[in-house]
């Protein structure tokens, strides 16, 4: 028997669904999912949390950016069943109409979007960018690996490079991030 046939037989007979409890924006959800379900699909298709967007579905565009245990990741490139007991925060948990996060307000103030599709991911990454600089995590453009990190446009642009915007709102996104950085300083 070829190995391919063995694999197909396994797929037919094996358990290909799993139960998982996901903690999202502080709320626990018990789910039984096909093992293939990405965290992004679990959020959008099973929990009706449609703020996180599916752009490329291959980790290249950043529209699906969420926080897992405080770190930004691409929700499209991780399996939901691997996140039992993790703390997940989506754009809905960052803030909403009644309680805007300062970064959301800054995006509005600076018109930092056009169609808005990439915006939830941009806002999650923008918040993470400032946190990562504050935590002293260097980037590709950081001059000295062991020195303080300057909050320059170059640093912000490099750290936002995992989020693509086809409308080209980058200049205003940069302004929005600078505003929040200034408010904090």
């Amino acid at each position: 028997m070829t190995s391919t046939t063995t694999f197909e037989k396994h797929r037919e007979s094996a358990q290909t669904r799993s139960s998982v409890a996901l903690t999202i924006n502080g709320q626990r959800h018990e789910l039984t999912l096909d093992n293939r379900t990405t965290l992004l699909d679990a959020l959008r298709e099973h929990l009706n949390l449609t703020g996180s967007k599916k752009g490329c579905d291959h980790g290249q565009c950043g529209a699906c950016t969420v926080f897992i245990d405080g770190q930004r990741v691409n929700a499209c490139l991780t399996l939901a069943v691997m996140h039992q007991d993790d703390e997940i925060t989506t754009i809905e948990g960052v803030g909403g109409v009644e309680h805007l996060d300062p970064m959301q307000q800054a995006f509005i103030d600076h018109d930092a979007f056009q169609c808005g599709y990439c915006t939830p991911g941009q806002i999650c990454s923008a918040k993470a960018t400032l946190e990562e600089i504050r935590a002293g995590i260097p980037s590709h453009v950081t001059k000295e690996l062991t020195g303080p990190i300057e909050l320059s446009d170059e640093e912000i642009r490099e750290r936002m490079s995992g989020n693509l915007c086809r409308c080209g709102a980058y200049a205003n996104i940069l302004e929005a991030i600078r505003q929040v950085a200034k408010e904090r300083a």
């Binding site: 980790g59 950043g62 990741v73 490139l77 993470a128 260097p138 590709h140 062991t146 750290r159 995992g162």
Partner: peptide
């Protein structure tokens, strides 16, 4: 800190790759 101080070529190579989201994972 130890990598940044004693093996900086490794830090530099890591931060030259992928995006922050991918490097976190």
């Amino acid at each position: 800190e130890r990598i940044r101080r004693d093996y900086p070529v490794l830090s530099r190579a890591l931060f030259a790759g992928a995006s922050s989201q991918l490097r976190n994972k």
